[in-house]
């Protein structure tokens, strides 16, 4: 069982090598020349202005937060979906269905609240 995860380890190691190898080859082979244009964000492109580390709009945070909440909801529902059939076989399907429905309705109220408050709109 645990040995199956050896595949994942192999993939991780190969992935790291695949990412590191081009960088290492460039570091070994490429000629080095430094001039100001080379350090621009977009070479031969629009000259950037201001700092990349600006203060972000709070809306991004709201979207991220709503995303996190519904991601957590989906994760809660995943084990429920896995055992649903088993509970149907035990004649408990309706009870378990109502349980999940209650869960979704409570969170759905949150979605409606966010919607009504205009948090889903990009003004």
């Amino acid at each position: 069982m645990l040995l199956d995860w050896l595949y994942v380890a192999v993939f991780a190691v190969v992935g790291i090598i695949m990412a590191a190898l081009p960088l290492a080859v460039v570091w070994l082979l490429a000629p080095r020349a430094d001039y100001p244009q080379k350090r621009l964000t977009y070479e031969s492109g629009v000259v950037p202005f201001g700092q990349a580390w600006a203060q972000f709009n709070i809306r991004y945070y709201l979207f991220a937060l709503i995303f996190v909440l519904f991601e957590v909801e989906v994760i809660y529902l995943f084990p429920w979906a896995v055992v649903f059939r088993e509970f149907i076989n035990r004649q408990l399907g309706g009870f378990v269905f109502v349980e999940a429905l209650l869960f979704i309705v409570i969170l759905g109220m949150g979605l409606i609240y966010a919607w009504r408050k205009g948090a889903l709109e990009w003004v």
Partner: peptide, 18 residues
């Protein structure tokens, strides 16, 4: 079930503050 309530409260709270 309570976890869904906790999620709801955190969503509403974040919206109010933001």
């Amino acid at each position: 079930e309570i976890s869904s309530l906790v999620l709801l409260v955190s969503l509403v709270g974040a919206l109010v503050i933001a």
